[in-house]
Amino acid sequence: MTPFRFAAVSTVSEASEMLRADAAGSRLIAGGTDLLSEIKEGIVQPQTVVSLQNVGGMREIVAGTDGMRLGAMATLTELEGHAEIRRSYAALAEAAASVATPQIRNVGTLGGNLCQRPRCWYYRSAAFDCRKKGGSICFAINGNSKYHAILGGGDCVIVHPSDLAVALVSLRARATIAGPGGERSMALEEFFAGPQVDIMRETVLQPGDVLTHVSLPAPSPNWRSVFMKSRERQAQDFALVSVAAAMEVADGAVRDARITLGGVAPVPYRVRQAEEALQGAAVASVDPARLGEMAVAGARPLRDNHYKAPLASNLVRRAVTLLLQDGA
């Protein structure tokens, strides 16, 4: 790795200050599994790496009457094994368990998973000066595009690699950011930003911002969720396509539904048309296959990723079918 200064701070504001003082040269490190790979590959060369590991309280997972508060430094293993998450937010536990390997889940964090950089092989190779690295070309658009976006791409066709993001968006999570101007919070889907907003990043984080925690609303008794992930290997792989669905079913009708796809767009992709079709629908009248088709309406596959549209469509169908069976 290229040389850098390692700074273990003890407060979020200290971290924020250091990140703002040298926006170009500093990087935040949580579990480090993504950042260290980037440094080793030579695609980032920070002067300072600011570690959050000594900041108190950032790893806490707290369940209360108004929902849960998940510290950004909680590890994926901790999320996956938490009794309340498994009970009331199944999609999140399933998503956490599906990430990478046990070794990586033991150090990889919630915040790091949400803020990880794309897996696009052109981005990950120092040999390609792609748009995300300040270059003028997206090599995937006319290149090898097997793992790239079929929806919402534009000038850069990455897909967002986070499994947790897909689950958390369907679970109506909110993100809280501490920055130079104080604290702010937003729906998690607004935390992510596609290339149209800023091609150099995938979130709304600005210099000096630190994602401190994610909150989940209290679950209603009839609320169920599921996460499914299609990948080439049974372990370790990132998603080809993933889906998280969360639904409230009562008195034979769908009261509320959220469906989010991963692996298809530069951000976690809400399937709003299918969500609206489900709203208030009698369970018996729901056509999961039709919802699956709606999910990929408007998809524009690239040369190598036509398979993603039927895959996404089928995952939506399966997720909805499963939740309706469970809720019946």
Partner: peptide, 10 residues
Amino acid sequence: VDSCLVLAAE
């Protein structure tokens, strides 16, 4: 853990 993905300082 994978010791290649942990900094010695950590």
